[in-house]
Design a protein around this nucleic acid. Structure first.
Lengths: 196, 196
DNA sequence: TCGCGTACCGTAACACCGTTGCGTTACGCT
DNA sequence: AGCGTAACGCAACGGTGTTACGGTACGCGA
């Protein structure tokens, strides 16, 4: 009975792609629904029928960001040594953040006012850290790490990499500070702190 | 010859105070120049003659945030034990962030689109970490810590506390995770990783 | 003391934003 | 063929940061 929808799945992907490009090119501030709709050859209404609102569209980007993040973390090969594995995961974490800094900003800093990840997105975000949890549990089970609650080591490691990466991306680190060199050193020291 | 200025230093402080209150109450999104001017009994022009622009006003808040931060960190009493001192500094860091989360957001996440700290503000921000640098240098000099470049340990410690605090504030941590308990444990483990 | 000059300040406009009501359009079924 | 209806885009609404401009209120010189 109705006319066929042009606000369909294809348009949804097109908007998502273009929104990612706009943000990657000029930052979250440059993402305007009017510009986005014009670029995609549709009207701003499309965003509302497909996503609900601008924050909801950003939520979709957030989910996509964690999907890519998860892919990279899952691709990390394990050595069996817990400390070495934590270092490898940390390096992959940083590489992932640097691959798309603006997406990282959406995921971990509230750079789009009004956007809060919804419950499902939050759940996904946490699931992304599964490789990390796995590594920590193995480290404790094998007797390398002290026998504390795994979440403590997980959150500690996550906090360190997130802190270093976000300080680096926001330009808060000393100008001449070489991150690459110190990064692995810091990861190793942090992981070593949990050794028996 | 001219009329006396009412856009003076007193008004500047009033605007700064009120801007801080608005942000603390309803987040950075709620800071609008019109509302701010109305609250302070003046016009939006005042912000432009006193600060230059909205980002410049936020820059002033940024500076104020780091000033308070520095006060708290400087007030931490030293024990002489480098690990214990790093833990104390980390605890003060978290307390400071929790005392005004929205100010912390301005300082460390780009929550106000268009705002970038200027060079002078950046310099101040780094100077705030002096107590941390001092502690690390003493730890190395006394032979407790391995003999690496002090910046490496400084940035590593800063990264950990910043990462944990910002994950906590942004609600990214597991729901039932008790931060208070794990926090000091993580700080101690991280600092211990640099022991000889 | 009066009035002029001038620096200052608020009003109002501009361009833009996210959002939404509403009239139009274009299809599928009868 | 024509009607019902769902989907769509235009245009308006209230808001934003920013700025040009015209009125204002003072201090100094006459």
């Amino acid at each position: 009975m109705p006319r066929p929808r042009t606000h369909d799945k294809a348009l949804r992907l097109k908007l998502l792609d273009r929104a990612g490009e706009l943000i990657s090119a000029d930052g979250p501030k440059a993402l305007s629904l009017r510009k986005l709709a014009a670029d995609a050859g549709t009207s701003t209404t499309a965003v509302y029928s497909l996503f609900g609102s601008k924050p909801d569209l950003v939520n979709a980007l957030y989910v996509e960001g964690f999907r890519r993040f998860g892919e990279r973390l899952n691709a990390v090969a394990r050595t069996g040594d817990a400390v070495a594995d934590l270092v490898r995961l940390g390096v992959a974490y940083r590489a992932s953040a640097q691959a798309d800094p603006h997406l990282y900003a959406i995921m971990f800093t509230r750079s789009v006012p009004g956007f809060e990840p919804n419950a499902e997105a939050d759940r996904l975000a946490r699931a992304t850290l599964e490789p990390l949890e796995d590594t920590v549990r193995r480290g404790i089970a094998s007797g390398q790490f002290t026998d504390v609650a795994p979440e403590v080591i997980v959150v500690s490691s996550w906090g360190l990499v997130h802190g270093l990466v976000s300080l680096e991306l926001s330009g808060n680190l000393p100008p001449k500070f070489s991150v690459s060199g110190a990064y692995e050193q810091a990861l190793r020291a942090n992981a070593s702190g949990w050794l028996k």
